[in-house]
Design a binder for these strands. Structure first.
Length: 345
DNA sequence: CAGACGTGGAT
DNA sequence: TATCCAAGTCT
């Protein structure tokens, strides 16, 4: 087992002498710290920085974000992915504004009840902003701890993550926020997945895996299932007023984002007309194809241009498309349409 | 618990 | 090309 006192001192000393100047480390505002943690879920620091800067400029206080409308927030979040994060955060922030007087609670039990607050966010925010002695267990920490303890349990299991969280909380020092960040930073910069820099590791002497030269055996993770492939025809329905058909996605995937109408490749024109409530010239012009890879599925899209004389509430002027939130998947295929419009004359 | 949920980068 | 990974949470 680890010798907590020495380990903690070595880790914290390393952290303070190598501390990176990240934007969210310049504030003690719990709202901003919380926002940064939401953005950092499954997302690298380098990706988050510009989004974080944009958000704290546009929504400098909790009340500003509470008062924003969801569509604007989604537009600002566009490209960051996992869009439910901002919808859940907005919901939680509105709850704080209405039921907690706009102050982020420093009561962990209350905080954990808020939407989008799980074991990681709860521990991170409550330790960094309020110095509660709670762990913040992310992918970095799971990897670091698995190697330190030569722990061969499957780290993808929630039960194992819970156990690791408890282990850390049994040895966490009073500087809990710094300690959590130090553990994550160690994983992100030294104890990396592929070629860890053990030679530079401040806690090498405490590492069981290093001792037995088995660092590469950890962490143990269950393999991910293969992505499912989906094939769609994506349609640009353009009418005589230079409007195109666009609708707000209501399913779980990309909820709230706008989408061009897409159908399984074998869907008939008649069925498409019925589904969209439009009449179409049945002559379609091929625009191009795109592939988009999600975490769990792959879209293969074929884009077609179709003319229509119809118009309904789903048609918006082409020039206004840039104002609505759209997924990267749709933007990719949309660019081909724009290229056809401007370059094909 | 297993699967859903974005996007971009590294190997 | 295929796979993994990144400051995870929800259902």
């Amino acid at each position: 087992m680890l010798q907590p006192a020495t380990f903690n001192n070595n880790l914290l000393e390393w952290y303070h002498s190598n501390k990176r100047d990240l934007p969210w480390r310049r504030t003690d505002d719990p709202y901003k710290i919380w926002l940064s943690e939401v953005m950092l879920q499954q997302t690298q620091v380098i990706t988050v920085i510009p989004y974080f800067e944009k958000f704290i400029t546009k929504y400098p206080t909790l009340s500003d974000l509470a008062g924003a409308d969801e569509q604007s927030l989604l537009k600002d979040w566009e490209g960051l992915g996992y869009y439910n994060r901002i919808r859940n955060f907005h919901s939680a922030i509105k709850e704080v504004e209405e039921n907690y007087g706009g102050r982020v609670t420093d009561d962990p039990d209350e905080f954990f009840k808020l939407k989008g607050v799980g074991p990681y966010i709860g521990g991170a925010v409550q330790s960094i902003a309020f110095n509660h002695l709670l762990a913040a267990v992310d992918g970095n920490v799971l990897r670091v701890m698995a190697r330190l303890n030569a722990d061969a349990r499957d780290t993808t299991k929630a039960s194992v993550q819970k156990s690791v969280k408890a282990d850390i909380e049994s040895m966490i020092p009073l500087e809990a926020g710094d300690f959590n960040q130090a553990l994550m930073e160690l994983g992100a910069t030294i104890c990396t997945p592929r070629t860890p820099k053990c030679i530079l590791c401040p806690v090498q002497q405490h590492c069981e895996a290093f001792k037995y030269n088995t660092v590469h055996d950890y962490p143990v993770k269950k393999k991910k299932p293969k992505k499912k492939e989906e094939y769609y025809n994506v349609y640009f329905l353009q009418n005589d007023r230079d409007e195109i058909y666009l609708y707000k996605q209501e399913g779980d995937l990309l909820k709230g984002m706008y989408e061009l109408p897409k159908f399984d490749v074998d869907t008939s024109m008649e069925n498409i007309e019925d589904a969209l409530g439009v009449e179409l010239d049945h002559k379609k012009i091929y625009i191009g194809s795109e592939k988009h890879i999600f975490t769990h599925k792959v879209w293969y899209m074929e884009g077609y241009l179709l003319h229509t004389t119809s118009s309904n509430e789903h048609f918006i002027p082409i020039g206004e498309v840039q104002n609505v939130p759209m997924s990267m998947a749709m933007k990719k295929i949309f660019r081909k349409f724009i290229a056809e419009e401007t370059g094909g004359l």
